[in-house]
């Protein structure tokens, strides 16, 4: 199919097709859309791509993506450095920041333990978290991995790794309740069981 296309177009289609969730048809549509776009819009996109790879770094404290290391959160003196919230991905930090409820620091693992994808404990930033425990005044670690098989396995492993290193830090897990807008009758037993175990005082 690509042989009838000018090479730059074919190259762009191939590049799009490598993105998650994009098949060959969508890739072609996107490429032709860009071709019809005003020049300056297309150039803005290419500039944004270049900047993405050139000026995004990993914060050497929390491993979130940032423009500087330490990142804005880690460098902010008003944040509580005694609390660290462990998440799987940078997007989870954004979601938690949006709530405005959390004032501590983060630690981004960049994934979760997943036998299916061949991602083991050593592929994640878990050693780095253990090291932070040794040098930072951390009182509490909030394990905010996804409520999935992989997220739970990761949280469990981190607990073991911290205890194996003699840490007695307070470990908490995000409350796993019922989804807002859901019906108890439709809840699966794992979710319902956890909601029951993690129930809280009525205030």
């Amino acid at each position: 199919m690509s042989s009838a296309l000018p090479r730059p177009v074919a190259r762009l289609i191939d590049a799009f097709a490598r993105l998650p969730g994009i098949g060959p048809k969508t890739a072609s549509r996107l490429a032709f859309h860009l071709l019809r776009m005003p020049d300056d819009h297309a150039l803005q996109l290419s500039e944004a791509l270049r900047a993405l790879k050139e000026s995004v770094v990993h914060c050497q404290r929390c491993y979130n993506i940032a423009e500087t290391s330490p990142c804005e959160v880690c460098a902010d003196p008003s944040r509580d450095s005694g609390t660290v919230c462990v998440v799987e991905e940078p997007l989870d930090v954004i979601a938690l920041e949006r709530t405005g409820e959390y004032k501590g620091l983060y630690h981004v693992l960049h994934g979760a333990i997943s036998p299916v994808d061949g991602i083991g404990p050593t592929d994640l930033r878990i050693d780095e978290l253990v090291r932070r425990m040794g040098v930072e005044p951390i009182r509490e670690i909030i394990l905010a991995t996804n409520p999935s098989l992989e997220g739970d396995a990761t949280a469990m492993f981190i607990e073991r790794a911290l205890r194996a290193n003699g840490s007695e830090v307070r470990l908490t897990r995000l409350a796993r309740g019922l989804p807002v807008g859901g019906d108890i009758e439709y809840a699966d037993e794992v979710t319902l069981g956890r909601a029951m175990t993690g129930r809280s005082e009525v205030r």
């Binding site: 299916v116 492993f157 073991r160 194996a164």
Partner: peptide
């Protein structure tokens, strides 16, 4: 099998971290 490789990696880690509940 991928699970075999994964398990081997886990066994290396298990020398320092107790994996069983």
């Amino acid at each position: 099998l991928r699970s075999v490789e994964f398990l081997n990696g886990l066994r290396r880690v298990a020398r320092t971290v107790d994996l069983a509940p």
